[in-house]
Design a binder for these strands. Structure first.
Lengths: 143, 143
DNA sequence: TTCTTATCTAGAACAATTCTAATCTGTTGA
DNA sequence: TCAACAGATTAGAATTGTTCTAGATAAGAA
């Protein structure tokens, strides 16, 4: 059951992160964390909230996504210069990115190994190693 | 001398790519390809051109960077959701990215090995594997 | 030359994101 | 319980990087 994130846990997570559990944060938190790992854009989450009958402004969605990211509840994924993705999976892992559709998929961090990394340049410290496997979605085939 | 890109070669490269060697393209091409490998943003290249006394509009800089990229004279590097970088090194390689300063450095492609990549998902083909080593620039130390 | 087109340009338009100033709401402590 | 404050939310304006547009210009062919 360790993968489940029970309903009420969103409240606890916000409190632990020092974030006031407001109506909006709770609603967005549930959309994000109930259910499995997700990759969302601000725009998409905003739409999803509307559809779920939760009224939050786009500005709040942006604020919340950034606050969650600071609190390590989310991770930002940079794969596309047009939009920013946020990932609910904050464990060590990498990504497939399908360029034409814009869809993201996780790759387990333990599966991939990156060897031969040079030392970090002087005056810098390593923050993270990102591996992005870029894919071309092939047009639907008829066998 | 195989690393040099003699002055007149820019002309040849444009011709080979099927691009008319206009004044603007030649000027930008020289800024980009004379000298070593470079990472530029549109904005930065535009400024550089102005300073070099070449008058090109920002729109032309964008057009040219994209045309060069299509012609494989440049490569686009996605590391920062705020701006797009273009890399004059089009051979197989990866990047260091210093997050606070926004500077990019090449990592030889032969040095790094990525192992354990899962098979590409159904209906997709592999386009490229990008490794981005994100660094934190440490504030200047006084020893 | 002259003609045909590709190219260039300034500025408008656009999309994603951030900012602003006013309003609202959680929380705290009397 | 309630007042009061700090923090959160909001609509809309502002900003930023990039693309589009329509008219002016220049490269290459005849």
């Amino acid at each position: 059951m360790s993968q489940d994130r029970p309903y009420s846990q969103t409240l606890t997570r916000l409190r632990d992160a020092g974030l006031r559990p407001t109506r909006q944060r709770l609603a967005l938190g549930r959309l994000l964390f109930d259910g499995g790992d997700r990759h969302v854009t601000a725009e998409a989450l905003h739409e999803e909230a509307q559809k779920a009958g939760v009224s939050v402004s786009l500005a709040t969605v942006y604020n919340t996504l950034h606050q969650f990211t600071e609190a390590q509840l989310l991770r930002e994924v940079v794969v596309d210069s047009a939009r920013t993705y946020f990932d609910t999976n904050v464990s060590d892992h990498h990504h497939f990115f399908v360029e034409n559709s814009g869809s993201l998929m996780d790759i387990d961090g333990e599966k991939i190994a990156v060897t031969g990394l040079p030392a970090t340049p002087d005056g810098t410290t390593l923050a993270r190693v990102d591996v992005i496997v870029r894919l071309q979605g092939t047009p639907s085939r008829q066998p």
